[in-house]
Write a protein that binds this DNA or RNA. Structure first.
Length: 108
DNA sequence: AGAGTGACATATT
DNA sequence: CAATATGCCACTC
């Protein structure tokens, strides 16, 4: 049982072609205002990483968060999103069109 | 133990 | 719109 299981559980539910923000995931995981923790959890994720659609998590501006520590995974993330039919315009996607609207009854 | 850091968010200027 | 400030908290020296 990983410490960040709740975060992974939320990310796992983001549907194909849709995205969630770090803050949104934190909120749904019961960790309000801890967006940074979500980024850290995905960065540190280990075995289950293959089952987790980590590429569907973007920042509040609708951008892929770039960082050298990702060792190119940020570019992979953008490719994966484009492969799901999401268009980027000046390094940004439309949250209005693609943001995941979860069924809140299954959360808190 | 305490300072620095980071796949972030929000408010302010 | 961009830059800055502040809040946040696990983790690493």
């Amino acid at each position: 049982m990983s410490k960040y299981q709740k975060i992974y559980d939320v990310v796992r539910q983001i549907p194909y072609g849709q995205v969630a923000t770090y803050g949104q995931v934190a909120e749904l995981a019961g960790l309000p205002r801890q967006a940074r923790l979500v980024g850290y959890a995905l960065f540190r994720s280990t075995d289950n990483i293959l089952e987790i659609p980590w590429h569907r998590v973007v920042n509040a501006k609708g951008e892929v968060s770039m960082s050298p520590v990702r060792e190119g995974m940020d570019y992979v993330q953008r490719s994966r999103l484009e492969a799901e039919g999401i268009e980027f315009r000046s390094d940004r996607l439309s949250l209005n069109r693609h943001r995941w609207q979860p069924d809140l009854t299954q959360f808190g």
